[in-house]
């Protein structure tokens, strides 16, 4: 039963990793951008949530009502103000600018909030659990997983059934011709980044409820999200969920052997899949 429990907990944590990954996958799909500051933005969202809670006294999940639009607006501005200037075929500018952004965010958060680790208190939600067939399922992990499924389903719907999604796909296919359809690529990219940071906001709040956070947690979250994307297969949103789950399970199994192996086991699973199936488990067919 223990191993089953480990796997189940890993699956549920995988939902969080899928939330880290979904935004990465989205912006890569739309504009071929890999944002090194992605993890730091997750942490930024956690701190914003902390401040919102301080100001309003709302419970963490309700604070999302503020955090999501704030992060989305920040994403729109970030894309229009900085990142759009880096896009033009060359690999270096977006990579190095987002790397600089990552260092700025980490040290900015350090300057404002110190290096102390924080946590958001979600009260009874954190300890509530249900026992099904002898396995105890925490309400929080279950909610996290359900949110991930809902977010990915929502993104999938948006991508394939709305005008905005059509604009995303068209711009990704051929930005120049998309311009001739009246789509200003700078705006399309900004909307994609806004959407991405909206998802990042949700990921940040769940991260902050689930565990301690500090200004330097970002790179680790970026790596988990990235691993989930590659494991699942580039360009496949549902794949990121599968990738997150595999990563979560691998980490869970690693941790059950030796706590020091938790993260390492996740990396090893990623490297194994990279070695055996370099295009991921579920690559998009037309990729």
């Amino acid at each position: 039963m223990d191993i089953l429990n480990t796997i189940l907990q890993g699956v549920l944590v995988g939902g969080l990793y899928a939330l880290f990954a979904a935004g990465l996958s989205l912006i890569f799909g739309v504009m071929r951008l890999v944002n090194i500051a992605h993890g730091d933005l997750i942490v930024l969202a956690a701190y914003i949530a902390m401040e919102v809670i301080k100001l309003t006294g709302l419970p963490p999940l309700a604070a999302l009502v503020f955090v999501v639009p704030v992060m989305a607006a920040f994403g729109y501005a970030l894309q229009r103000g900085i990142l759009n200037r880096t896009l033009g075929g060359d690999l270096l500018p977006p990579l190095l600018v987002s790397f600089g952004l990552s260092v700025i965010l980490q040290n900015g958060l350090l300057a404002v909030f110190t290096a102390d680790s924080r946590k958001l208190d979600a009260g009874a939600l954190e300890t509530a659990s249900a026992t099904i067939g002898g396995i105890s399922i925490g309400l929080l992990p279950a909610l996290m997983f359900a949110t991930a499924v809902a977010v990915i389903a929502g993104l999938q719907y948006l991508f394939y059934n709305t005008a905005l999604g059509r604009a995303f796909r068209a711009t990704s296919d051929d930005a120049e011709i998309a311009e001739l359809m009246g789509l200003d690529r700078r705006k399309v990219y900004a909307w994609a980044m806004a959407l991405c940071l909206g998802v990042v906001a949700i990921a940040g709040v769940f991260l902050a409820i689930r565990s301690n956070f500090d200004p330097f947690m970002g790179p680790g979250r970026l790596i988990f999200g990235f691993e989930a994307v590659i494991i699942g297969g580039l360009g496949n949103l549902w794949g990121t969920l599968a990738g997150g789950v595999i990563l979560g399970v691998a980490q869970g199994i690693g941790a059950s052997i030796d706590p020091g192996w938790q993260i390492l086991a996740g990396h090893v699973a990623f490297l194994l899949i990279l070695a055996l199936k370099p295009r991921g488990l579920f690559p998009r067919m037309d990729g």
């Binding site: 500018p93 600018v97 600089g100 260092v103």
Partner: peptide
């Protein structure tokens, strides 16, 4: 502050 400055300088130069 030093790191913030370096990061900003790198971004400005890159752009």
């Amino acid at each position: 502050i030093y790191l913030l400055l370096l990061g900003t300088l790198a971004i400005v130069i890159m752009l």
